[in-house]
C-alpha cells in the first residue's frame, strides 16, 4: 500500500516536474528571441532610421522611412479591401445564412483559408495581377494581404455579430424597422467593439507577413505613394537586408524587426484590452 502510494506520488512529482521544465524550456526560448530582437534592434534606431531613405550599400547612415511608410500604405489598402468584404460576408453568415448549406460551406472554407500557406497566396496574386498588369505593384501586395485577412474578418465578424442577442433584433424589427436597418444601426452598433478587435488582430497579422509580398509589392529604394508601382515594406526589407553582405544592413534589419514586432505586439495588446473591457471573463 505504502509502496504504491509512494510510486504514485513519485510519478506525480516526475510528471509535474517534466511539464514545468518543458514549460520553462519553451518560455525560455521565446524570451530569448524577444531579448535579442530588443538588444540587437535598439542600436539601429535613431532619427534618421525613421525619416531618411536608404543610402547606397557601403555608405554610412540613411534609414528605412520608405519601408515604414510602405508597410503602412500596403496594410491600409489591404484593410480597405479586406475589412468591408469580410464584415459583409460575416453579416451574411450571422444574419441571413445562419444554418443554411451555403453558410456552412463558407464557414468551412474560411477556416481553411485562414491557415492557407501565405506564399501560395503570393503565387496566386502574381499570376492574376502582377503578370497581366505588367508590373509589381503596391496594389498587388495589398490584394495578397487582403486575401489573407478576409477569412479572419469573416469568422470574427460572424462570431461577434452572433453575440448580439436575437431579442434585440426582434425588438427593433417589431418597431417596424427593415432588416437591413436593424443590422446596420442595431446589430453593428452592438458589436462594434468586437469587430474593431477582430480588425485590429487581422491588421496585426498581415502587417508582419513577408512571403506573399515577395512576388507582389516587391521592393523600392525610393518613396512610393502610387498603388501601381512597387513599394518597399519592412518585412521584405528585413528579408533582403538579413541575407545581404553588409554589417550595416544586418543592423538595420534588426531595427526593422524590432519595429515590426513592437507594432504587432502593441496592436494585439490594444485589441485584447478592448475585449476585456467589454466582458471581464
Amino acid at each position: 500500500m505504502n509502496f504504491f502510494y509512494l510510486r504514485r506520488k513519485f510519478y506525480n512529482l516526475l510528471a509535474l516536474t517534466v511539464s514545468l521544465l518543458s514549460a520553462g524550456f519553451g518560455i525560455f526560448f521565446l524570451f530569448w528571441i524577444l531579448k535579442d530582437v530588443i538588444t540587437l534592434g535598439l542600436p539601429a534606431l535613431n532619427w534618421a532610421f525613421f525619416t531618411e531613405l536608404p543610402v547606397p550599400p557601403g555608405a554610412e547612415g540613411g534609414g528605412l522611412a520608405h519601408a515604414i511608410l510602405g508597410t503602412i500604405f500596403v496594410t491600409v489598402v489591404a484593410t480597405v479591401i479586406g475589412v468591408p468584404s469580410g464584415i459583409l460576408a460575416g453579416t451574411y453568415l450571422s444574419e441571413y445564412g445562419r444554418k443554411s448549406g451555403t453558410a456552412s460551406v463558407v464557414r468551412f472554407l474560411s477556416d481553411i483559408l485562414v491557415s492557407a500557406p501565405s506564399i501560395v497566396i503570393g503565387l496566386f496574386v502574381y499570376a492574376i495581377l502582377v503578370k497581366p498588369l505588367g508590373g509589381f505593384s503596391a496594389i498587388a501586395g495589398a490584394v495578397a494581404l487582403s486575401i489573407i485577412m478576409l477569412p479572419v474578418i469573416v469568422r470574427t465578424a460572424e462570431e461577434v455579430l452572433k453575440l448580439v442577442p436575437d431579442s434585440t433584433r426582434e425588438a427593433a424589427l417589431a418597431l417596424g424597422a427593415p432588416h437591413w436597418k436593424v443590422t446596420v444601426h442595431v446589430v453593428y452598433r452592438g458589436a462594434i467593439r468586437g469587430i474593431t478587435t477582430g480588425v485590429l488582430l487581422a491588421v496585426a497579422r498581415v502587417s508582419g507577413e513577408t512571403a506573399p509580398l515577395l512576388f507582389t509589392s516587391f521592393n523600392n529604394s525610393f518613396w512610393n505613394f502610387n498603388v501601381a508601382e512597387p513599394t518597399a515594406t519592412l518585412t521584405v526589407t528585413i528579408f533582403n537586408y538579413a541575407l545581404g553582405p553588409y554589417e550595416d544592413w544586418h543592423t538595420k534589419a534588426w531595427g526593422a524587426a524590432l519595429i515590426i514586432t513592437a507594432t504587432v505586439l502593441l496592436v494585439t495588446i490594444f485589441a485584447r484590452l478592448l475585449v476585456t473591457r467589454r466582458s471581464p471573463r
Partner: peptide
C-alpha cells in the same frame, strides 16, 4: 478620407519611377 488618399495616390502624385531588377 481613405478614398481621397487612394485617389491622390493613384493619380496626381505619380512621378516617373523606373524599375529595374
Amino acid at each position: 478620407a481613405v478614398t481621397l488618399i487612394l485617389l491622390m495616390a493613384g493619380g496626381s502624385f505619380a512621378d516617373t519611377l523606373i524599375n529595374g531588377a
